[in-house]
């Protein structure tokens, strides 16, 4: 998890001297999480890349405008969410998520190296089908390794609410996987 004091010092350097290197360090801290957050919401890798880089550019502009930032992580996720919405307004998807996903699965050179690759693919497919809130919480908790409290700060919910969402999300994934198994 991030170091709040370090992030605040980076923010201060950006705010007082427009320091690009400090911004680069913030980028390093959050790029993977934000990319992953975006990745599950847009149809293609290219769009995920565009939206992610646009998110960081908007963050810079937001900071340069002298806006108050309480927690950089929460702000970044919020900017990413808005950027995705703007992106979806401009670019109506030409292919369904399922089709895109079907194209991605053959890119399984990485999967082949993993013992339970078939299971991972099934779980991934199920996670893709979840509603945004469930998927976000699952990814933040188990992929990004954030605690319920930290996710609560990012999504502006209480830790208890996050635990409930987490439980429901896992149950939903299990439900989605069961029929597949039975087939």
């Amino acid at each position: 998890m991030s170091n709040p004091l370090y992030e605040k010092l980076l923010l201060h350097r950006i705010r007082t001297s427009g320091d690009p290197e400090a911004f680069g360090k913030l980028y390093d801290l959050y790029i993977q999480r934000i990319y992953r957050f975006v990745y599950f919401k847009v149809p293609s890798t290219e769009e995920a890349q565009d939206v992610t880089s646009d998110t960081f550019l908007r963050l810079w502009q937001f900071l340069q405008a002298g806006n108050v930032v309480q927690y950089i992580g929460a702000l970044l996720y919020e900017i990413a969410r808005n950027t995705i919405i703007d992106h979806q307004r401009r670019h109506r998807p030409t292919e369904s998520i399922d089709e895109e996903f079907a194209l991605e699965i053959p890119d399984a050179s990485g999967l082949a190296k993993i013992h339970r690759s078939a299971e991972v693919a099934e779980v991934l497919a199920a996670v893709r089908l979840l509603k945004d809130e469930y998927r976000e919480v699952l990814v933040m908790r188990y992929v990004d390794g954030l605690s319920a409290s930290e996710i609560g700060v990012l999504l502006k919910k209480s830790p208890g609410a996050i635990r409930v969402i987490l439980h429901r999300a896992l149950e939903t994934v299990r439900t989605l996987l069961e029929p597949a198994k039975e087939k």
Partner: peptide, 12 residues
């Protein structure tokens, strides 16, 4: 399985 996503391009 979800934890394995972090090492996969298809997992984001």
């Amino acid at each position: 399985n979800i934890e394995l996503f972090r090492d996969l391009r298809v997992g984001g």
